[in-house]
């Protein structure tokens, strides 16, 4: 998913890229609540009939379910942020905070398409500067990569015009 934010027109832009994830935190909580309700009702019913050992098994299972879903949701947090401010382009990648980053002079940045990893996969998009390149938006779909390339090309061009 691509989200674009604008600071000073023509000078400051931020593009936020997030990995595909079809589950939101709200949906996860809703699902866990239904599972808890269901398991809770069943276990309580059997406890009332004297079969209390069902309760710890139901509780442990729900905890495992909640832990696994939480871990998955944490993984959804991976994002890339591309900040274009005056003559600098900053690329950052991480979850809760940047784990990898790169600072480039925007005048020297070019976008480059590379071959896909294999047949049926999307072409790869790179930021190139001073002979080195870094892949961006590896988790985006082909359509999203094309949109990102077009947006970034336009913003870099606008930025150059402004800087001149």
């Amino acid at each position: 998913m691509i989200k674009t934010e604008q600071g000073v027109p023509g000078r400051q832009h931020r593009i936020i890229l997030t990995a595909n994830a079809s589950m939101t935190a709200r949906q996860m909580h809703f699902f866990l609540a239904i599972a808890l309700l269901f398991l809770g009702m069943t276990a309580t019913g059997f406890v009332m009939l004297g079969a209390w050992p069902v309760l710890p098994f139901a509780g442990l299972e729900w905890l495992l379910l909640a832990y696994c879903m939480r871990k998955t949701l944490d993984r959804n947090a991976l994002r890339e942020v591309i900040t274009l401010a005056d003559d600098v382009l900053i690329w950052e990648q991480g979850r809760l905070e940047p784990e990898r980053s790169l600072r480039l002079q925007s005048a020297w940045v070019a976008l480059e398409w590379g071959e896909s990893r294999n047949r049926n996969h999307a072409r790869r998009l790179f930021l190139r500067s001073h002979g080195r390149r870094t892949e961006i938006g590896a988790f985006l779909t082909e359509d999203e990569r094309a949109t990102l390339a077009a947006t970034l090309t336009r913003l870099l061009s606008d930025n150059q015009k402004y800087m001149r």
Binding site: R100, L102, L104, R132, E135
Partner: peptide, 10 residues
């Protein structure tokens, strides 16, 4: 250019 963490190259 500066890179503060591991970056890919060609």
């Amino acid at each position: 250019m500066s890179a503060s963490a591991a970056t890919h190259d060609d």
